[in-house]
Nucleic acid binder design. Structure first.
Length: 465
RNA sequence: GGUCGGGUGGCCGAGAGGCGAGGCAAGGGACUGCAAAUCCCUCUACACGGGUUCAAAUCCCGUCCCGACCUCCA
């Protein structure tokens, strides 16, 4: 039985989907205005682990992850770069997609773009205006009237009057009925992209698209809404406000992932401490970065350091190496099996760190079994490790991580290295250790490690870092 | 000002009243021609001050420190 945290109640409780056997999830994806940093990708990895665990638990999961491809920053940046806004948005959307793929994040069931759902946004605004929750002051803007909502700010636990007064210079002369009313729709300024509406030409305001798209693909109520911690207010409060005012039940449960930090501070472009995915991937493989980002609990801050990342990568290679050896010894790839201890950890609000401890136990027992040449024990532990890695999205045998060209190359190399190892073995047999060590050192200089195992010598390519 | 989250050994990172999660690093040992890999053993913690309790890293009160959000951040 899966237990999950809910930001709305701040408690961990049993998860029961609306429809038996099905889970609907909406995750706030990227606003494609810059290249993805590892914080963005951590969010995707966390929700991917949730999704994989739900799948493994027998649920049919529908996951919608949006792309916000129109907003102030996109327009602003496009103007700076003298690029059409849609070209800029597309460029970064591709970068996000590439980063997700490099980290083996499963593609969402659907990935709707804001600009493709203007019709649905207009319909939603019409409902809100008709029922008196929203108003159009006549300049082309449309606002939601927050004072009319009963449950506004219950997710973040704030009170309207406690919010810091808007620093907006126009606040005094504002056409808003209350300074806290937020824009569903913004009138187009000259030169800005716009779409026609009954209230004037304009563009989406405060992430109206998330409410509209969640409704379009998941219906009036759905099981889980996810996103980063910093979206709780105002973004998610506003989504709730828009959707509930329209009469929708909206999300039953809220999950928020914590950040990747550096020196305790949140990673962010504006702080200048963001680490781009493509830069990190020059030093570690995607599977290793994923292992690192997934290794902390999703609600805990992950304090980034180069050292921690590298150590994590080494730890992963140890697990990977065991699986490869197990496959060599048993003559077949391990199967994916989920141990009861790993399952218990995942069922407890996705306690990945506890799950990793069970993998360590499997690893120790599995390595011991290799020493003892106990094939069934090797298989058992290898299967359980592979099953756990599959859920974490870090299965080294996953075809998304397997490069077939390098697999062919490695076969050819195997033959070549075997020739050298044959020489080394005969040198060792005649106790000519100078000769045998020269061969080993020569291979090492090429980045090839030789290990003498009970089953004979074994070679592997050293990973960088 | 309001709201929320933190401070755990050299490092990373769980736990949330009761046998010291786990990993990395360090030291010792086994194995090995030497290595590598692996296994075994050992060590080091709960920001500070009070309180509750048979028992507190965990609950309560206070203090200090760090971070986040407060109208277009994952």
């Amino acid at each position: 039985m899966l237990n999950l945290y809910d930001t709305a109640t701040r408690e961990v409780g049993p998860f029961t989907p609306i429809k038996k056997g099905e889970v609907s999830i909406y995750v706030c994806g990227a606003t494609v205005q810059a290249a993805p940093h590892i914080g963005h990708i951590r969010s995707a990895v966390n929700f991917d682990i949730l999704r994989r665990w739900l799948n493994m638990s027998g649920y049919d999961v529908t996951l919608i992850r949006n792309v916000t491809d129109i907003d102030d920053k996109i327009l602003q940046k496009a103007a700076q770069e003298k690029t059409p806004w849609w070209a800029l948005a597309m460029k970064y959307e591709r970068e996000f997609t590439a980063a997700f793929a490099a980290l083996n994040v499963l593609p969402p069931t659907y990935e709707p773009r804001a600009t493709g759902h203007i019709t649905q946004m207009i319909e939603l605004m019409q409902i809100l205006i008709d029922n008196g929750s929203a108003y159009a002051p006549g300049n082309g803007d449309v606002y939601l009237e927050v004072r009319k909502l009963h449950r506004y700010l219950t997710l973040s636990g704030q009170r309207i009057d406690d919010l810091m007064p808007a620093t907006d210079v126009d606040a005094a002369s504002s056409i808003k009925r209350d300074p806290r009313d937020f824009a569903l729709w913004k009138a187009a300024k000259p030169g800005e992209p716009s779409w026609p509406t009954p209230w004037g030409d304009g563009r989406p305001g405060w992430h109206l698209e998330c409410s509209a798209m969640a409704h379009t693909y998941l219906g009036e109520s759905f099981d889980i809404h996810g996103g980063g911690l910093d979206l709780i207010f105002p973004h998610h409060e506003n989504e709730i406000a828009q959707s509930e005012a329209a009469g929708y039940g909206f999300a039953k449960r809220w999950l928020h992932n914590a950040w990747v930090t550096q020196s305790g501070e949140k990673m962010s472009k504006s702080l200048g401490n963001s680490l781009l995915v493509e830069v990190i991937l020059q030093n570690v493989r995607g599977i290793e970065l994923r292992w690192y980002l997934g290794s902390a609990h999703y609600r805990s801050m992950l304090e980034y350091s180069q050292t921690a990342l590298e150590e994590s990568a080494v730890a992963f290679r140890r697990v990977e190496n065991f699986l490869k050896r197990a496959a060599e010894i048993t003559g077949s790839l391990p199967k994916c099996e989920v141990s009861t201890s790993f399952a218990a950890a995942m069922d407890d609000d996705l306690a990945v760190p506890v799950g990793l401890a069970t993998i360590s136990e499997n690893l120790r027992l599995g390595n011991q079994a290799i020493t003892d040449n106990d094939v069934s024990e090797i298989s058992k532990n290898a299967n359980e490790i592979r099953g756990a890695l599959e859920i974490l999205g870090c299965d080294p045998f996953d075809k998304n991580f397997t490069d077939f060209r390098s697999a062919d190359l490695s076969q050819a190399m195997d033959g070549v290295i075997a020739l050298a190892l044959k020489e080394r073995t005969s040198a060792r047999e005649r106790k000519d250790f100078a000769a045998s060590d020269a061969i080993r050192d020569g291979l090492l200089a090429l980045g090839i490690t030789i290990e003498d195992t009970a089953q004979g010598p074994r070679w592997s390519i050293m990973e960088k870092s």
